[in-house]
Design a protein around this nucleic acid. Structure first.
Lengths: 215, 215
DNA sequence: CGTAGTCTTGAGTATCCTCAACGAGGGTGG
DNA sequence: CCACCCTCGTTGAGGATACTCAAGACTACG
């Protein structure tokens, strides 16, 4: 793909200013109200971007997979907290000012950053369709389809859900109990099979899409 | 503000390729599956970005106010439909390729576009906190606060809601009836006053924030 | 092997959605 | 100028879905 190769070039161009860090399970990559001085990129593993409400509940705004950029903001401080979900998640950190300078010289870099931001918009607006006005099965169904599509092999050999049920619940804005119940129901319907708690196989992809809808 | 003036400069730099169009009430600015060849900017009025689900329901993903850029996508086609909400909404259209070329030469333009995209991400992720796991009053309350903050005068003299209750319902992912009932309840609580159907005054801002929360 | 965290299942309840009817406002045509 | 219609907005009654509280099973880790 043209986009892929351009992204590759741009990553190379930014390589000089990047620092890679492996993270422990649950470790904060940045926190709400930290100064927003860098952009980030997931090399491997999984991270969650989340907010804590006034009532103490947590909402996960995005799961960040390998290849995702994040940390963009127009403000001086971050609004969300990002934490590694799995042990050993590797994150690249790009000092914002220095990347901006590189981008001013090399339009490809600017373009790749723009596109990363566009992608974040698309993903987040697509998620709105899931959060808004969907039943529990629709939410869980489309979540599984989303994770399958975002995983490297499109989930043909089984989808890995490295996150806990709690994470899924906070991502889909529903209670853990309902997530659990719903997975049981989907299994009962023959749409999915659960190898173990974190490995799902999509048996009847059509049915799952029909239940969850792509929207 | 520095950002404002830079945005101004960038708008000037792009002025040559822009075309302004006034739109009728309900008129489509672009439609799902239209080729994504331009970016857009709201000069005046109000537009809604929406999707139609398989079951025929509509979801409004974003309200677009004066000063908002939109139409960014990484795909070749648009995924959402954008329609003018009020008669006479003026939209600027920027051919994407030509702006890209300008941005390659003038880093300020690239930066402003980036920031517009960042802002869209922020807005849309903030909205997720509203859509997810909130009661009806919290949704409506935070919607009113949001509209007040986004209006030019911060809504001190009253917030204008040019859109219909149906639009609000589809924006907050709830039924029209519940929107209506909830506004009545908030009025009963003394948090707001309704001058007419489209003019709300926030009487007890603190209470509204407490109910709706900023998240 | 024990403990803490995770996951699943059950029972009861609250919230919001659906269906339904009515009222108000704006525009059109007679 | 008035009657009519159509859309929009509000209110009511009933029911379904998902949440809360609660308890028990399973896993991973020390």
């Amino acid at each position: 793909m043209h986009r892929r190769s351009e992204q590759h070039d741009a990553l190379l161009a930014m390589k000089g200013v990047a620092t890679n860090t492996p993270c422990r399970r649950g470790q904060e990559i940045y926190s709400r109200e930290d100064p927003a001085e860098s952009w980030y990129y997931i090399v491997s593993g999984l991270a969650r971007k989340c907010a804590v409400r006034a009532d103490g509940r947590r909402q996960i705004v995005d799961f960040l997979l390998p290849g995702d950029f994040f940390g963009f903001t127009v403000w001086l401080e971050h609004y969300f907290t990002v934490e590694a979900v799995v042990e050993g998640t590797v994150v690249s950190r790009y000092p914002r000012r220095r990347v901006e300078i590189i981008a001013d010289d090399d339009p490809r870099v600017g373009r790749v950053i723009r596109e990363a931001a566009f992608e974040a918009v698309s993903r987040s607006q697509a998620r709105m369709l899931i959060l808004g006005r969907m039943t529990a099965r629709q939410k869980v169904g489309s979540f599984l389809v989303e994770m399958a599509e975002r995983s490297s092999d499109n989930g043909v050999l089984g989808v890995v859900l490295p996150m806990s049920r709690y994470d899924i619940a906070d991502y889909l804005a529903m209670s853990v109990e309902t997530v659990s119940r719903t997975l049981t129901i989907l299994r009962g319907l023959g749409a999915i099979a659960l190898a173990d708690r974190h490995r799902v196989r999509i048996v009847d992809h059509k049915a799952l899409v029909a239940i969850g809808g792509n929207w």
